[in-house]
């Protein structure tokens, strides 16, 4: 982490200074999700239409009469960002075909949180991926329903204490494993799936640009550290994201037309403990539970390594 990567030196040239997601929004201090949204907006530029689900990013960015959006942005409801984006894409396509709107490359972006994606929005998302709309879907995963007050979702990791999976005397927090949404997206055989994290801004921007360029649906799963919900100091957001990747908890990879590839190679995984210990939501974990998590992380990582080996073929 202390080593400066060569690309970092040139970062200012690779990422535009222009902001399409304006400052002054109402996100919490240290919100890595707002940072991710800002980077995504930079990567996509001005020729984009955004469909947003209900959630943190919607309430912090659009309290009428204010808006943080310098690009067209629409919010309809919680579970339907993928469907609204489908309509935006289809409507624009037909208007351009009929000559009612001048032809031009526009990226259609749908965005939702982990609840809006892996729980209540999974049906609309699956439908849109299957129908093959030319759009990018980004799930900003902060691993619980943070907007309503840190309730557990199917994306909450095992062991985490939330307001509906509290660390009790009998049941010590979330007892289920995180739903693997990128794999569910990949199972639709769409052209592009990737994971990303704003702790790795260059990687994030490259993936978003690639997703926008590819014809057909693309899915990006964005780990978005939430200091408020994860019970960690705001200044540790970026570090927590790095540790998630370096411990193998959240590997950065992409599935490009079925081919798996690590985009951030981790030579030797750090102990998961380093990631867990900085977060209050894991404070109560017994040694046994920590071991269980460590084992699971390594198992999952190995599975992913196999997929990379199996699908690269060159």
């Amino acid at each position: 982490m202390e080593i400066v990567e060569p690309t970092n030196v040139y970062a200012y040239k690779l990422i535009t200074k222009k902001d399409y997601f304006a400052p002054g929004h109402r996100a919490c201090q240290g919100c890595a999700e707002a940072l991710a949204v800002r980077l995504v907006a930079k990567a996509l530029g001005r020729n984009v239409i955004v469909a947003s689900a209900t959630g943190c990013m919607e309430i912090i960015s659009s309290p009428w009469p204010f808006t943080s959006w310098r690009v067209p942005w629409i919010h309809v409801a919680f579970e339907n960002a993928a469907a609204v984006a489908s309509g935006v894409e289809a409507g624009m396509k037909v208007l351009m075909r009929k000559g009612k709107v001048p032809k031009k490359k526009i990226t259609f972006l749908a965005m939702a949180g982990d609840g809006g994606t892996s729980d209540i929005g999974v049906q609309a998302l699956s439908g849109a991926l299957e129908r093959g709309h030319d759009f990018v879907y980004i799930c900003y995963d902060n691993e619980a329903y943070m907007n309503t007050g840190i309730q557990r979702s199917s994306s909450t990791p095992y062991g985490a204490s939330t307001t509906t999976s509290p660390a009790g005397k009998v049941i010590p927090g979330q007892m289920t494993w995180k739903k693997n949404m990128p794999e569910i997206a990949a199972a639709h055989s769409i052209p592009y799936v990737a994971t990303a994290c704003p702790s790795y801004p260059i990687d994030l921007v490259e993936k978003v640009k690639k997703a926008a360029k590819i014809k057909g649906p693309a899915y990006i799963h964005m780990l978005s550290v939430c200091p408020t919900g994860w019970r960690l100091p705001p200044e540790l957001s970026i570090k927590a994201g790095r540790l998630a990747v370096e411990t193998g908890v959240f590997p950065l990879y992409e599935v490009d037309h079925g081919r798996y590839r690590f985009t951030e190679k981790v030579e030797k995984l750090r102990p998961v403990e380093e990631y867990l210990k900085i977060q209050g939501r894991f404070r109560h974990l017994s040694e046994e539970m920590r071991d269980t998590i460590q084992k699971r992380v390594v198992e999952e990582y190995k599975k992913l390594v196999k997929k990379v080996q199996m699908t690269q073929g060159d």
């Binding site: 239409i49 469909a51 629409i74 309809v76 409801a77 339907n80 469907a83 609204v84 984006a85 489908s86 309509g87 935006v88 894409e89 289809a90 409507g91 624009m92 208007l95 709107v101 609309a124």
Partner: peptide, 9 residues
């Protein structure tokens, strides 16, 4: 929801 998107453009 799709109709909402269609109409919005």
């Amino acid at each position: 929801s799709v109709s909402a998107g269609v109409s919005a453009v």
